[in-house]
Every structure is written in C-alpha cells, then in structure tokens.
C-alpha cells in the first residue's frame, strides 16, 4: 500500500469521525443529509460482501467493518436518537435517491467484469459511491449557510477521493499490468462532483469567512 492510498483512507476515516463527533457533541444533525448517509450504507454493504469470502489483509477487514459500523451508527443517530433526530432537515432533504440507485444498478448490469451477483453488486457500489454525495450537496445548496463541521466533512470526503486518484496514478507506474477502468472512471467522476464545492470552500478559507454557497 502506498502513502497516497493510506492518506486517502485516513482522510475518509477522519471525515466520518468528524461527522460523528459533530452529531454527538452538538446533539444535532442539522445540514446533514440522511439520504446521502443511507446511500453510503448501501455502498458499503454491497461492496463489502466480500468480507464473507475473501481475505485481503487485517487492515482491509478492520477498515471495512469500521466503515459499515459507523455508517449505521450515523443513520441510527439521525433516525432514532430522540434529540438528534429532531434536528434533521427532513423537508429540505428531498432528493429522489431512486434516480441515482436505478441508473447505477442498470449500468452495473451492463458494464461489469463478470455477470455474477457479487460482481454486479460490487460494480453497483462503485457507481453509486460516485454520486452518493449529491443529496448532501443539494441540501447544502438549499440551506445556504454551511456550518464549519459539515463543510469540513464534505471537504475531507472530496480530499479522500482526490488522494485515491493520485494513488491510482502511482500504482499505474509502479505495478506491472495494473489497471481498473471501472474504478478509475467512476472515481474521476466522483472527484469532479466535488470541484464546485472545493471552489467555495477554499474561497471561504482564504477570506477567513464562514462558507456560503451562491443562490
């Protein structure tokens, strides 16, 4: 494993910890999209089915379990915690997730490496992850004012993807015959989804202001 990949994973993990701490400390999930969190849970469940039949490394297994557990913990807080769930912007978080799930599933049926259940589900998880942040970005756009922690959470999620891109370039030049087109194309799309957000995040940071999205 190279340094970019490790940095990417750690940034991903940190983004989740930041979100969980925000929810626990402020007892509020205002500005957080439950739809996006549920999409991530679907992504992790469909991708990590291989926990049952393949072992890559202890690191790999532990990280997968952490991602699964934290995803469901966040959903539990937003749906069931008696204080936190009242702060959820249900009326604003109205993205139609089926518009993401169905096309991703169809694409996974059409473009995959092998027509098997686990392989199609794995491919589906790759496509879905690329667009899973969209409900969150739409919610942000609607509520306009972005609190620092939510902003940092999204910034870290975007950074994690950018680090994975660098990791793939590194692997391409250091590992003979290494290529994974489905992952590369989806990952590039996923990183591009964050570009607009990055622009406003960096601008706010440079001007030392609270982040604001244009109307």
């Amino acid at each position: 494993m190279n340094i970019f990949r490790l940095a990417g994973d750690m940034t991903h993990l940190l983004s989740i910890i930041v979100l969980l701490l925000k929810i626990q400390a402020t007892k509020s999930c205002a500005g957080v999209s439950l739809k996006t969190q549920e999409l991530y849970a679907v992504v992790f469940v469909t991708r990590y089915l291989d926990l049952f039949y393949s072992f890559i490394s202890l690191y790999n297994t532990v990280m997968k379990i952490i991602f699964l557990l934290t995803a469901f913990t966040i959903i539990w807080y937003m749906r069931k915690h008696k204080v936190v769930c009242q702060t959820y912007d249900k009326e604003q978080d109205t993205f139609r997730v089926l518009f993401l799930i169905v096309p991703c599933f169809v694409l996974a049926l059409l473009v995959n490496h092998e027509m098997s259940v686990t392989e199609v589900l794995w491919t589906f998880s790759i496509y879905l992850e690329a667009v899973a942040i969209l409900p969150q970005l739409v919610l942000l756009q609607r509520t306009k004012n972005v609190d620092n922690l939510t902003g940092n959470y999204i910034f870290m999620l975007g950074s994690y993807r950018a680090l994975y891109l660098v990791n793939w370039v590194y692997r391409y030049f250091t590992e003979l015959g290494y290529r994974q087109w489905i992952v590369w194309v989806s990952g590039t799309v996923q990183t591009c989804v964050y570009l607009d957000f990055f622009y406003y995040y960096v601008q706010a940071w440079r001007n030392n202001e609270r982040m604001k999205l244009p109307g």
């Binding site: 991903h12 890559i56 990280m63 490496h113 990791n167 015959g177 994974q180 489905i182 992952v183």
Partner: peptide, 10 residues
C-alpha cells in the same frame, strides 16, 4: 491478474 480487478482498495 488478467484484467480482473484487484479488490484491495476500500
């Protein structure tokens, strides 16, 4: 590994 993806990434 003949083109088949290595699923060692998260």
């Amino acid at each position: 590994n003949g083109g088949k993806e290595r699923k060692d990434e998260l």
